[in-house]
């Protein structure tokens, strides 16, 4: 074995590199498959809620008229809508992103609470007029409810029929 190794050191190196890259690929695929459960629309929260406390992202539109600020001045409640009638109430303590407005898209990072509300630790809204969080591409304020069956296969379809 030792002799074989000495004779074919280049081969050994190639195999070592391949093994590492394949391992990286496998780890990546395995972790990414779990990531499929990372991004949720309100209807997905309703259908298959993530476990309480699991770190996920919730994406959707901020329902018009739903933003209320509590008396402490920093805790905000609002409702996120998706492509169906399902909605999720979100609680967030913090400074709202510059372009966070009703009727616009938002991605909330946080976790689902036992009472069914979503506690957000961070909000991602549009940075500027040109940049929209990838997950919200195609969602806009004037959406019609979609045929949910069309999205049964997809993990997080946000495509908008125009």
């Amino acid at each position: 074995m030792a002799e074989l190794k000495a004779k074919h050191q280049r081969m050994t190196l190639v195999i070592l590199a391949l093994v590492a890259i394949v391992a990286a690929g496998l780890i990546a695929t395995w972790t990414l498959r779990n990531q499929a459960n990372y991004f949720y629309l309100p209807e997905q929260i309703a259908a298959e809620p993530p476990s309480v406390g699991q770190a996920v992202r919730l994406g959707g539109m901020v329902q018009a008229g739903s933003i209320t600020t509590q008396s402490d001045g920093i805790t905000v409640n609002f409702v996120v809508t998706g492509n169906t009638a399902d909605t999720v109430s979100v609680t967030y303590s913090g400074i709202l992103p510059d372009l966070f407005v009703e009727g616009s898209g938002v991605v909330a990072e946080g976790s689902l609470q036992a009472d069914g509300t979503f506690l957000a630790t961070n909000l991602l809204a549009k940075h500027d007029e040109n940049y929209v969080p990838r997950e919200l591409e195609g969602l806009d304020g004037h959406q019609e409810p979609q045929d949910a069956a069309a999205y049964a296969e997809t993990v997080a379809g946000l495509e908008q029929a125009r």
Binding site: A24, F39, R134, E137, T154
Partner: peptide, 30 residues
């Protein structure tokens, strides 16, 4: 190289799934 592969796959994965109309978010937990 393996870390590079991890970053590359994580960066391209959302683009690939998007081609099939599946949107995913890859972030720090990955």
């Amino acid at each position: 190289s393996a870390i590079l592969a991890i970053v590359l796959l994580g960066t391209l994965y959302p683009l690939l799934t998007e081609a099939f109309d599946v949107r995913v978010s890859v972030g720090p937990p990955y």
